[in-house]
Design a protein around this nucleic acid. Structure first.
Length: 471
DNA sequence: TTAGGGTTAG
């Protein structure tokens, strides 16, 4: 369905009055891109407590909740969820809760994810291992490893772990550097009657490769094939190739490409992106064109990541014009530049001291359909500090904190140090106040920054703390 | 809409 402007939807509803059907509402909601308008539509069909309640379909609830969750409009999402909880005509399917839990995970709101999991029974829905796995995944995404035991104890009463549970656990252990424990989970799976699958091996091999344990990774791949009868896929090869490149063995990565051809595993854009990146890393740039040609011959189209690798390669060669040309080529070939495409170019502009151009690109991103992310802010902030454009840096830091992004403690400390050296009292106080308001700096860094400020005789301890408390 | 690969930054 073609997306109409909101006023068209509203006009449709106004014309139909209360006669709009639950089916029609779902189809209107499906076509509505703006989550606020979708919510408005959803609410507009119910005339209030005086009249017969509108019989919302489960699909309408699903559509609105999903749109609000994606847009991080959590308060509104909870209101619709609460309304859904009051419906007695149907029970709510578990995947909807999995979705809600993953929205909270993405926003790093683990407690809200856990609360959602606990509320599932009140929606007349049975909690299976699926929603449990979503919570576990949320725990991993939010980095709340310390709460693993607490949450595991609660879950044991509701469901038994499956392969997916183990895979999430293995990934969490790899992520915190506990590779032996991760391996132990794999070894324990058959004892618990759980069969490891392709994902289990991928996650573990990926962990081993990230830690440069190539020997163990290849050994595990052999076990996977011989003992478990699982064929390696392109994802597994990409992990192994990246591992080879990490230890500097690009030839071994190309050897894996040959193996893929022999074993008839399809080479996709991720495989080529990994190899092209490796060539740039070791300075074998002359071979990039040939590989791109081979990619074309194999009917494999470059995707956004492939272009980003090429942009990053051009930047390494200090060829910004080529980077911009690639940005245009992306659009011509139906690939949308993403935040990484811009961050790479901005990073190079900062490195070359072209701060005005970097700032222009940063400010132009929204117009080009791309929102700057935390990395965009980090790049521009450190570029401005490097060039001693402290006023501009202070302004950007304030904006970053206001948007809820966390700056690096170390770069903030360095920035405060620079302001002290400059003796710019006014700006120093403004910066400290905006950091305090955003609660963007860890406590021990505050101590360090306050002692730094006072050591430089900018302010007395009492004077500074007083100012921060009362600002 | 249960879990998984390749690009930026630190």
């Amino acid at each position: 369905m073609r997306a109409h402007p909101p006023e068209v939807h509203m006009a449709t509803l106004a014309r139909s009055g209360r006669r709009v059907s639950p089916f029609r509402l779902s189809s209107l909601l499906r076509g509505e891109k703006d989550p606020s308008v979708a919510l408005q539509l959803f609410r507009s069909v119910d005339a209030g407590p005086e009249t017969k309640p509108f019989r919302y379909s489960l699909l309408s609830y699903d559509l609105v909740i999903t749109k609000l969750g994606r847009a991080r409009m959590f308060d509104e999402m909870e209101q619709v969820l609460a309304q859904l909880g009051r419906e007695t005509r149907f029970s709510v399917p578990e995947p909807l809760f999995c979705q809600v839990i993953s929205f909270y995970a993405r926003a790093r709101l683990f407690d809200r994810a856990l609360r959602t999991y606990r509320s599932i029974p009140s929606f007349r829905c049975h909690r299976s291992v699926k929603s449990w796995n979503s919570v576990l995944h949320a725990l991993l995404k939010c980095g709340e490893y310390g709460r693993m035991d607490e949450v595991f104890d609660e879950f044991r009463n509701h469901a038994s772990p499956d392969a997916c549970t183990c895979n999430i656990l293995i990934r969490a252990l790899c992520g915190s550097g506990k590779l032996e424990d991760a391996r132990a989970v794999l070894d324990e799976m058959p004892l618990r009657g759980i069969r490891p699958d392709g994902v289990t091996f991928l996650v573990l091999i990926n962990g081993l490769c990230s830690n440069s344990m190539l020997g163990e990774a290849f050994e595990l791949k052999d076990d996977m094939v011989r003992v478990h009868g699982i064929r390696p896929d392109a994802r597994l090869y990409a992990s192994l190739m990246k591992g080879c490149c990490k230890v500097g063995d690009v030839n071994m990565a190309f050897g894996l490409k040959e193996e893929m051809l022999r074993e008839r595993v399809e080479l996709d854009a991720a495989i080529y992106s990994t190899l092209i990146h490796a060539l740039f890393e070791v300075g074998r740039t002359a071979e990039v064109c040939g590989l791109l040609e081979e990619m074309r011959e194999n009917g494999c189209k470059p995707d956004t990541v492939t272009y980003n690798v090429l942009i990053s390669g051009s930047c390494k060669k200090k060829d910004i014009d080529e980077a911009y040309r690639l940005l245009d080529a992306m659009v011509e070939n139906g690939c949308k530049p993403d935040v990484t495409s811009y961050n790479v170019i901005m990073g190079e502009l900062c490195k070359e001291g072209k701060l005005d151009e970097a700032t222009d690109l940063f400010e132009d991103m929204p117009r080009r359909g791309c929102t700057p992310d935390v990395v965009s802010y980090w790049i521009l902030f450190s570029g401005l500090c490097e060039k001693m454009q402290l006023k501009e840096a202070a302004f950007l830091l304030d904006e970053m904190v206001f948007k809820g992004y966390t700056p690096h403690d170390a770069s903030v400390y360095k920035f405060v140090d620079l302001l002290c050296q400059e003796g710019n009292h006014e700006l120093l106080l403004t910066v400290l106040c905006s950091l305090r308001k955003g609660k963007a700096v860890k406590a021990d860094y505050w101590t360090r920054m306050i002692s730094l400020t006072c050591k430089n005789n900018e302010f007395s301890n009492v004077e500074l703390v007083d100012h921060l408390i009362n600002s």
